[in-house]
Design a binder for these strands. Sequence first.
DNA 1: GGGATGCTAGAGTTCCGAGG
DNA 2: CCTCGGAACTCTAGCATCCC
Length: 219
Amino acid sequence: TLPFDIDGAVIKVNDFEKRRILGSTAKFPKWAIAFKYPPEEKETKLLSIEVNVGRTGVLTPTAVFSPVLIAGSTVSRATLHNEDFIKEKGICIGDTIIIRKAGDVIPEVVSVKEHIPDAVPYRMPEICPSCGAKAVREDGEAAIRCNNPDCPAQLLRMLIHFCSRDAMDIEGLGDALLNKLVEQNMIKTAADIYSLDFGKIAEMDKMGKKSAENLKKGH
DNA sequence: GGGATGCTAGAGTTCCGAGG
DNA sequence: CCTCGGAACTCTAGCATCCC
């Protein structure tokens, strides 16, 4: 009966002394828990599965589906985590799938509603989509990895991490510019950041001027 | 002012290691 | 064996900032 929308409620122990006794873990109090309403679910068609290479070389499949409006925004992609997740759900390209937004934020593939007549189970690539090296799944692991230390996709991810706020905190050097620098072979290792041609960066990118200034400061 | 880019919040899954 | 903590990875919206 509230005059505004809510997505759930927090249920708490209604006694300060009991709260003190219960305490908390490193992340959450043990005396309160979120109660969320089931998220809105929508049907859509799975168009393709993209495979991305992360910083640690893990190959992560991403579902690309027909855009659907759900929980206030249009969604067209969702992570599929790994090969086991795809097998467990029985996901095939062309399927009608059910998606939702976990916590009203993160797009998630819930299940397959219907297969196309000649559906073929999806198989993860045996080579890295970025560098072409053999992709390996170690015993007992869910992830498939590219172990090539010179893989450009891994290098890019590593650089993004290296420049990020939690690491070297180099303002102005974000995903897009780093992507260009890697594509143009101006960076081959993280250490190359410190021997970049600042003038050239400023020429190739309008944001480059600021990046160059920040890099010089950091240097 | 418009376009490009940087950055953050927020939730869930998986994996790994530590400790009880 | 179980629980916990932390890291990695995924997504979009929306605000801030910068340059032309």
